[in-house]
Amino acid sequence: MAEIKEIQEEIIEEFSMLDSDMEMTISYIMELGEQLPDFPEEQRTEENIVKGCQSKVWLTPELQDDQVVFQADSNTAITKGLVSLLIRVLSGQTAKNILENDIFFPEKIGMNRFIGTQRSNGFAAMIKQMKLYALAYEAKVQSGV
């Protein structure tokens, strides 16, 4: 499994070919979202929702060996694309790695509006939720449960 930092650098490299064209960037993000594996219907519950002001994200974690595997979906195409990028970066990593690494790629691909000031989407809340799940798993490991 590649390092979280490396995957993010890969993403930034990919997006650099789009030459900061906003429409091409979000079109590409949308296409990436379409490739996300289908989210299990039974997991589409209120409990698994990460709420934003405008878009919803469904997120589930699962511990496989010592890796945290995430599945996710969104009701908006662009958020779903961004979510697929987060899955690519964080899913399959250890809880420790998830907690220790910063997410810096959205800003570098011109999507910084999604992680700071805007309440309009579930993206920022999703990063926080992924880290919280990792924290919970890490705490379990530490306490030997």
Binding site: M22, E23, T25, I26, M30, C53, Q54, S55, N75, T76, A77, I78, T79, S120, N121
Partner: peptide
């Protein structure tokens, strides 16, 4: 079949400011 949020984002990419949401 299109979420207002997605429309708002694509419109913004073309310099068009609308409001989306509730």
């Amino acid at each position: 079949g299109v979420h207002p949020f997605d429309l708002g984002m694509f419109l913004d990419a073309r310099g068009i400011a609308v409001r989306t949401g509730h």
